[in-house]
Amino acid sequence: MSGFGALIGRDLKLAFRAGGEALTLVLFFVMVAVIVPFAIGPDRPQLSRLAPGIVWIAAFLSMLLGLDRLFRADDEDGSLTLLRHSSLPLEAVVAAKVIAHWLVTALPLLVATPVLALLLSMSWEQWGRTVLALVIGTPGLVSFGALGAAVTVGLRRGGLIAPVLILPLAIPVMIFGVGMLDPLAGSGATLFLIALSLVVTAFSPFAAALALRAAGE
């Protein structure tokens, strides 16, 4: 168990030290939300109506952007091979890395959402529901992402392939996530999103570990 914590701790340290990318992702997240009004106009009621969708798109794109780093750095410097000789099974190694990745890429986005709420004239109630939807949905997103990152880890130019691969798979997360804000279908969407996120989070470490083993050969 101490290895599990040590792995999470190391990944957090690397992400927030100089050269880490955690803060850059937040910046990207805010930027996506900033450019939308330029495209559709600054009309407040309209922005407010579209805001949850915009936040989800911004979150989606920033999470996909950060995906490539999940296993690549550890693969290139050999850490991934050595981690396979640790007392943790590879599935647990993947799970620890996914948790760290969520803490580094998703949590800062959640912290930044009030800024987006202000910019996009969201009501506080709207903001609260969007954050709740993101809290439930982002573990699912990260888990789909882990799968994509594991599958493309052996490719020299996998950076673009993983997002293209994962985006269609993760569409249900977006559908239910935005659906949670629908006053009529909201509660149903919430349950679907919880179920989806749980199942994906539970299964992806096994699938990703399988892919990493295959990539190691």
Binding site: G19, L23, M31, P37, L118, L119
Partner: peptide
Amino acid sequence: WEWDGRMTSTLVLLLIYLGIIALWR
């Protein structure tokens, strides 16, 4: 917040600053 011309360009300026800081890091 209002998407007023001055505030909007100041916001874009802030994003440019943050981008440069990220690049330094």
